[in-house]
Simulated scan of single mutants.
Amino acid sequence: MYDKAYISHDIRNQCFTWAGIMLIGAVLSYYLTPYMAVPAFVVWLVLFFQEVHFDTYKAFEKYLLK
Rank of each mutant, 00 (worst) to 15 (best):
T33P: 09
K4D: 07
H53P: 01
F16K: 15
C15S: 12
I21D: 00
N13L: 07
C15W: 03
L32I: 10
T56A: 07
D55T: 01
V43M: 07
A59Q: 10
F48G: 05
I21A: 00
H9I: 08
K58H: 03
L32R: 10
Y2E: 05
Y2G: 03
Y31Q: 11
T33N: 15
E61C: 08
T56F: 03
F49C: 03
V38T: 12
T17D: 05
H9S: 12
A59I: 03
L32T: 06
T56E: 05
I11D: 10
P39L: 00
P34H: 01
G20L: 07
Y30S: 12
T17R: 06
Y31P: 07
M36F: 12
F54D: 13
S29M: 11
A5H: 13
I7M: 13
A19E: 03
K4N: 10
A26H: 05
V42A: 09
G20H: 11
Y30K: 11
T33A: 10
Y31I: 14
F16L: 15
G20A: 13
V52D: 00
V46S: 03
V43Q: 02
M22L: 14
E61P: 02
V43S: 02
A26W: 04
G25P: 06
G20P: 14
Q14G: 12
L65N: 11
I24K: 05
F16I: 10
T17H: 06
K62D: 07
R12Q: 14
K66G: 04
V27M: 10
L47N: 09
L32G: 04
P34S: 00
A5W: 08
Y57M: 08
A26C: 11
Y31H: 12
F60L: 12
E61Y: 01
F49V: 04
Q14M: 12
W44S: 12
F48T: 13
V42S: 06
K62M: 08
